[in-house]
Simulated scan of single mutants.
Amino acid sequence: MGKTEEEILESGENLVKKSRLFLQWGSVAALSSIGAVFVLIFIGSSLTDVRFNEILYEHLAAAIGVPLSALTALALVMALENVAGNIELETFGLKFKGASGPIIMWVICFLALVAGIKALW
């Protein structure tokens, strides 16, 4: 016998949830891999180049703090979206739904983290 319309919709929703989770964790794995490569290059450069160490010492917040803030904001938004569902914001008369909700939330988190680094540095 054929599937009912409810069963088809339910299986479609389950497939969408699984693919969304796969894409989210796939992006985390890709960013982690790229980050690991850059850390290895970073360590190699710091061991061999004295000028690199001087620049790193002078601009540590920009060299390490800003990229880590971007990854932290991404992790916060992804965790929030997994726990609470779709992110929807309404501020100053503007409504952010769909893909714009997580993007605006990421920007807010990132700017807050960078402002904290700037205030404390």
Results as ranks from 00 to 15, higher is better:
M1V: 15
G2H: 12
G2V: 11
G2M: 10
K3T: 05
K3N: 03
K3P: 00
T4V: 04
T4I: 07
E5P: 01
E6K: 12
E7W: 03
I8K: 15
I8N: 05
L9W: 04
L9T: 09
E10R: 14
E10F: 01
S11D: 07
G12E: 07
G12P: 00
E13G: 05
N14R: 15
L15Y: 08
L15W: 05
L15A: 15
V16T: 11
K17Y: 07
K17E: 11
K18S: 09
K18C: 03
K18M: 08
F22S: 14
F22C: 13
Q24K: 11
W25E: 03
W25L: 05
G26T: 09
S27K: 11
S27T: 11
V28Y: 03
A30T: 15
A30N: 08
L31H: 08
L31S: 14
S32I: 03
S33N: 07
I34K: 06
A36K: 08
A36D: 00
A36E: 01
A36I: 07
V37H: 04
F38M: 15
I41K: 14
I41D: 08
I43S: 03
G44M: 05
G44W: 01
S45C: 06
S46I: 02
S46P: 02
L47S: 05
L47D: 03
L47K: 14
T48H: 10
T48N: 12
D49P: 02
V50C: 00
F52K: 11
F52T: 10
F52D: 07
N53H: 00
N53Q: 11
N53E: 01
E54Y: 00
E54F: 00
E58C: 01
H59G: 00
H59D: 03
H59N: 13
L60Q: 10
L60I: 14
A61W: 13
A61Y: 13
A62W: 05
A62V: 11
A63L: 04
I64T: 10
P67F: 09
P67K: 12
P67R: 14
L68S: 06
L68M: 09
S69D: 05
A70W: 02
A70G: 12
A70V: 12
L71A: 06
L71Q: 05
T72K: 08
T72M: 06
L74T: 14
L76P: 00
M78P: 00
A79H: 12
L80S: 07
E81I: 08
E81Y: 04
E81S: 15
V83C: 03
V83T: 10
A84F: 09
G85M: 04
G85Y: 03
G85Q: 04
N86C: 04
I87K: 08
I87C: 03
E88W: 01
E90C: 12
E90L: 06
T91D: 05
F92P: 04
L94V: 13
L94M: 13
K95D: 06
K95V: 15
F96Q: 04
K97R: 12
G98N: 09
G98W: 04
G98P: 10
S100P: 07
G101H: 09
G101L: 04
G101R: 12
M105F: 08
M105N: 01
M105S: 08
V107P: 00
V107K: 02
C109E: 02
F110H: 12
F110N: 06
L111W: 02
A112N: 13
A112I: 15
L113T: 11
L113A: 13
L113E: 07
L113S: 11
V114I: 14
A115T: 14
A115E: 02
I117S: 04
K118C: 00
A119R: 10
L120I: 14
